[in-house]
Design a protein around this nucleic acid. Structure first.
Length: 726
DNA sequence: AGCACGCCGACT
DNA sequence: GTCGGCGTGCTC
């Protein structure tokens, strides 16, 4: 008796067994089943001969939705890998790999294309007989010349005209299968291909040497060095072989210009997947790609799941970008999944960035990835000069030093724009003396204490050691101790009052919700409608600000002294990205970094030697500190209505994990925002030198937790390779 | 995750 | 007397 093992949208780390009725569904096809009192849609994941359940108690499936699998073997492999690696319920994984429309049971087959055609009666109808209905007359005349797509008719002639003609029997709606539509391979052209420079040509030929096998390339090219041109020329032979290309871009970077550039170069339809699409639009791209009808698919994080009939190349642009890591539910990293997918499909993968993530850089340096570098800047690109501004003992107005305000004034009066940059992401903050720059450190670890305002405590995020907040500086006895970071609103108000004659605009993910809103803001900036730009991360992504001649990074220390070891890396990426986007050749920009520690070695290294040098130094530091990518981490989070419950749950995890080989724990430590929505949040950081020992320990741990201890009071989650510790 | 079952408080 | 609160447990 064949048993169907089905992945159901249930948060359990298991498959559910069912029986087939008379037709056997294929592996990878959707089926409808009854599950307890409700009906669910699941995907047949395995077919086996026996069940751990009593076979007599198994239910039969209700019906089969797909005759053909919607998950091919590679996709099933990817999902299984995801579930295994991220320790996530398989049903949930399968669910997130599917477009929403398919989760709801929509047909996976492309909808037939509807078009209007003149009937036999229509062909005999005199046009003049319709002279009293000009719209209908025009439509009929159009259709006598040839058939026309339904959507196009509706747009040109309106719904009323076509309906009237259908009622008269003059025209009719016909359907044809989309596969009979001409394929992109026939319309492929190569438009306006510029000559590659030496470095680009070298990169392109390195990639071309590995077109039909797995290989991972880090395309490490400074801003303005023409990474996109390398992508375009690497794509060319792939498309010419009739194979497909999947390109991932960060959430905000998905600008129409980029898409246009691909579309224009090759003259083919490009499938675009972004958050603004409806479920049906998303499904359509999915279907077309699965049928091989799209040469290029571009999309954000979840586009990595798009099936391809004939894959030829994967590209992850701006691979260091944090938006590739999903921050809730299935916490996967799309870049890492791209590596797994490229391997499974046996196709090459290009990871592109001006500021590669340290993990990626390490893989390139150890030879796991091929390292391709572009140093030459094309044409009129420029980089802003970078310098630190010592704010010790400086009077600060809404977070800005007086010296910097004066400098801003100069730039503004010359008609230039000034950009202020705040890290709104709450890095675990330290306590710093404004007089002398002294930072309170844990005596055991020599690491800055993290300030927990709600607890009114300083706590070391490396050993858990805690003390109360001192009232004066240990070194100079000043009472001016400050936490780092200032709110955007406060700054906005302050600037409006201080520079009444200049208009300011705030750009963050809240104010720029939606792509068109952001575009509008950007064009108003480039039209000089605003002189002072206040922004967060969003400004560092993909856009150029030729008229900005001064960039001020307000809260450098927040990142330098954060317990989050990634904060310094993120800051360096941000500074480097911004420096490449402000000003232009004739009007170069200057960038200022406000800090209490102007001599900080990482900061000095970045400013004097650039990102690549900084990154190597930072990697060395990570190695000495036993941190990723030289060790492997997982973050266990627990939240409960009572702090005691959350704490003891973490401790229970800790005590059972610590017995396992090669895994160490830090915590439990309260989360940065200890209490949110009435829930107390605690976390435990797990670390190992060996990826496999961490994986094994977590696997065993989860088996226990599901069978032995079901703490209903505590909601918990596990973040493998955490990027963010808040 | 849902959904049912169940066991206790304030209402027509 | 019951309507409904949400704690507990189960779903192939």
């Amino acid at each position: 008796m064949s048993i169907l093992r089905i992945a159901l949208p249930i948060p359990k780390r298991q498959l559910f067994d069912y029986l087939a009725v008379d037709v056997m569904p294929k592996i990878g096809a959707r089926v409808r089943v009854s599950f307890g009192p409700r009906k669910l849609i699941g995907v047949v994941w395995e077919i086996g001969q026996e069940s751990a359940w009593e076979v007599g108690k198994l239910k039969a499936i209700q019906d089969i939705i797909d005759d053909e699998p919607i998950f091919d073997e590679t996709q099933r492999k990817l999902c299984t890998w995801l579930a295994q690696y991220y320790k996530h319920p398989i049903g949930d994984v399968v669910q997130s790999a599917m477009p929403v429309a398919l989760r709801k049971g929509e047909s996976s087959l492309p909808k037939p294309i509807e078009f209007y055609s003149a009937t036999a009666l229509g062909k005999k109808t005199e046009l003049t007989s319709l002279s009293r209905a000009p719209k209908q007359q025009a439509l009929l005349s159009e259709l006598l010349a040839g058939d026309c797509l339904k959507a196009k008719v509706k747009e040109q002639f309106g719904a009323a005209a076509s309906k009237a003609l259908i009622d008269k029997g003059i025209i009719e709606v016909l359907e044809k299968q989309p596969s009979s539509i001409s394929t992109w391979q026939q319309s492929l052209i190569i438009q306006d291909k510029p000559n590659a420079n030496v470095e680009q040509a070298l990169a392109i030929s390195s990639i071309e040497a590995k077109l039909s096998e797995y290989a991972c390339f880090l395309l490490d090219g400074i801003t303005g060095s023409g990474k996109t041109e390398v992508y375009l020329q690497a794509i060319e032979p792939i498309l010419q072989q009739g194979k497909q290309v999947l390109i991932l871009v960060p959430e905000i970077g998905l600008t129409p210009q980029t898409v246009h550039r691909f579309r224009y170069r090759f003259g083919i339809d490009v499938g675009v997947l972004h958050s603004g699409l409806t479920n049906n639009e998303r499904l359509l791209v999915w279907q077309k790609s699965a049928k091989g009808q799209l040469g290029i698919v571009i999309g954000t994080r979840s586009a990595i799941f798009t099936p391809m009939l004939n894959p030829g190349l994967l590209i992850v642009d701006e691979e260091h970008d944090a938006s590739y890591k999903q921050q809730d539910g299935l916490r996967y990293h799309a870049r890492d999944l791209a590596v797994v997918r490229a391997h499974a499909e046996q196709v090459p993968l290009i990871l592109g960035s001006a500021t590669p993530a340290l993990e990626t850089l390490n893989n390139a340096l150890t030879g796991k990835y091929h390292h391709l570098t572009l140093h030459q800047r094309a044409g009129n690109a420029s980089v802003a000069s970078q310098q630190v501004f010592d704010i010790r003992q400086q009077p600060l107005k809404f977070g800005i030093a007086q010296g910097m305000l004066d400098r801003m004034k100069q730039h503004l009066q010359q008609g230039s724009q000034v950009m202020l940059f705040i890290n709104r992401r709450g890095y675990a903050p330290a306590l710093v003396c404004h007089q002398c720059g002294f930072v309170e450190q844990c005596t055991r670890c020599d690491k800055p204490f993290t300030l927990h305002n709600q607890l009114y405590k300083l706590q070391c995020h490396h050993c858990g050691n805690a003390k109360s907040i001192p009232s004066s500086c240990q070194q100079c006895h000043s009472t001016e101790l400050t936490a780092m970071g200032v709110g955007t609103e406060q700054l906005e108000q302050g600037l409006t009052a201080y520079f009444p004659e200049f208009s300011n605009i705030r750009i963050d993910s809240d104010s720029a919700r939606g792509k068109s809103k952001l575009d509008k803001m950007l064009s108003s900036i480039n039209n000089n409608e605003h002189q002072i730009l206040i922004g967060t991360q969003i400004l560092s992504k993909g856009h150029h600000f030729p008229n900005v001649t001064m960039v001020l990074i307000m809260d450098v220390d927040g990142a330098l002294f954060s317990a989050d070891y990634r904060a310094a890396e993120n800051l360096a990426q941000l500074i480097t990205q911004l420096a490449g986007r402000a000003g232009r050749a004739e009007k170069p920009g200057e960038m200022w970094l406000q800090t209490h520690d102007p001599g900080h070695p990482l900061l000095q290294d970045l400013i004097n030697n650039g990102y690549a040098h900084f990154a190597k130094y930072a990697l060395l530091e990570r190695q000495h500190g036993n941190l990723p990518p030289f060790t492997y981490q997982a973050l266990f989070k627990a939240q409960a209505l009572s702090a005691q419950d959350a704490h003891s749950f973490c401790k229970m995890w800790r005590s059972s994990l610590i017995k396992r080989q090669g895994v160490s724990c830090i915590g439990p430590i309260p989360a940065l925002m200890e209490k949110r929505q009435g829930q107390y949040r605690m976390q435990l950081l797990l670390q190992s030198n060996q990826r496999s020992s961490l994986q094994r320990a977590l696997g065993q741990q989860l088996n226990q937790i599901e069978t032995l201890y079901l703490a209903n009071k505590v909601r918990w989650s596990l973040d493998i390779d955490p990027q963010d510790f808040s």
